[in-house]
Design a protein around this nucleic acid. Structure first.
Lengths: 253, 253
DNA sequence: ATTTGTGAATGGGTTCACAGCA
DNA sequence: TGCTGTGAACCCATTCACAAAT
């Protein structure tokens, strides 16, 4: 029955976890473990075993009952699924603080996303050398995209111009965009967009932190233990570190 | 009936949207708009009107039927809820590429999260000046945390040491952590943890991109239009840019 | 005539629990 | 006996649709 039903519709939430599994499997690849159970993989990836099994079942990959999953095979499947076979270049638009930062960050190239180009709208920045690339002008986007094939566009501009930049990326043929700018960006439905907003993340943390210490504790007594002061009339079940919030706990059921 | 039921349990998903509303309202604050409808706010924030109303209702904030929400008041409520009244300092642990990047990024301080300290385990890095801070040693964490009050800890180390660093942050009294390291990190349930993994984001985009162009098109004909080639036997409904994936479309129902 | 606030309906994702297989 | 694969139950979030309010 497991006739490789590859074109299955994989849930969004599962897709978002695949890269984490992949990372876990890569760590494992060095060791001599040939096979891994959902339980152990769950522990490594920070989820729970049921979720792991469901997720892997979507890939149509087979584990062996009573044994576990073949690491080698799973790794292969996962890589293929995530398109790790061929490298996908990245264009960073906006070479300000954040753009520079990202350009110097080795983490991209290391994981199969070589930096393909840097562009900026500011003539003063064009020509500047960053790493082993030279900043080009944003007007060249169409040619750059053509040169690179089908790159991912990374928007690292100030918020106010993010939408315009995204529009130009799309016009140039980019169909995957990662937005770091603090602004809402709209793209046509045939373009994938993900956003990472550092300030938003901090504000979310801020929300939970202040809930924990209504307006006393931490600020007045910075030395206190990290424990959430109980008895402040809060339900305290998992308000502090819920599932989505964290890769936290997940304490074995 | 709207007797300010402040200690209401606000859903995770709503909390994650509050900062986006806040940003929209701040943009609005400059203009002369005194009041805004859920519809317009939805457009600005990139969600839909029903969601906006539900979300705002959790805050117990009142709009006026037939009119909309008072921008000023909503802004106040939202800021209070997110703890924007007092600045929350940030400690960055790990002054490598990414750490440097984040340290130079103005975006934090601008939005109420001043950089409080930089620390690293490498003695060679300790003493280095970055911006107007000097890198201190990770062993000093307890004192630094005490000095700063209740800072947010940002983990910008290589993956392998992320867990250890998180443990030390927690031990020092930090109860909000933002993890940039490509690794799973566990913290006690009374600590909030969020993660941002650049490589994971790119891999997710990679997944959808390759689904769109199974193994032809883009690579062989980089000039083609960005449109998803139809007729490749894919369901194509919203595989390309689903809700969670993007702040995309949301096209008015 | 508008636009909020919210119960009810729907849908996606997680967890449970167990049958099926090695 | 051990562990996967998966229907069923559950839970959270989104969306609908409409009564209440101005």
């Amino acid at each position: 029955m497991t006739a490789r039903r590859s074109r299955r519709r994989i849930p969004e939430a599962t897709v978002a976890r695949l890269p984490v599994y992949l990372r876990s499997l890569l760590e494992l690849a060095g060791t001599d473990t040939a096979t891994i159970s959902s339980e152990r993989l769950a522990e490594m990836a920070g989820f729970n075993a049921a979720k792991v099994r469901k997720d892997l079942s979507y890939l149509g990959s087979y584990g062996t009952r009573g044994v576990g999953y073949d690491v080698e095979y799973l790794l292969f499947q996962m890589s293929r699924e995530l398109g790790c076979s061929q490298e996908l270049p990245v264009i960073i638009v906006g070479v300000g603080n954040l753009g520079h930062a990202l350009a110097n960050y080795r983490g991209f190239a290391d994981r199969g996303f070589p930096l393909g180009a840097l562009v900026d709208a500011d003539p003063a920045k064009v020509g500047e050398r960053v790493g082993d690339l030279v900043v080009r002008h944003v007007d060249e986007l169409p040619e750059i995209v053509a040169e690179l094939g089908a790159p991912i566009g990374v928007v690292a501009t100030p918020g106010p111009v993010a939408q315009e930049v995204a529009d130009r990326l799309v016009a140039a043929g980019v169909c995957s965009i990662l937005n770091f700018a603090p602004a809402v960006v709209n793209v046509p439905p045939d373009v994938s967009l993900r956003k990472v907003d550092l300030a938003v993340e901090l504000q979310i943390l801020s929300f939970y932190q202040q809930r924990r210490a209504p307006l006393s504790a931490a600020v007045l007594a910075p030395h206190g233990p990290a424990a959430a002061l109980p008895g402040d009339g809060m339900p305290t079940p998992d308000v502090v570190a819920p599932e989505v919030l964290a890769v936290t706990g997940e304490a074995a059921s």
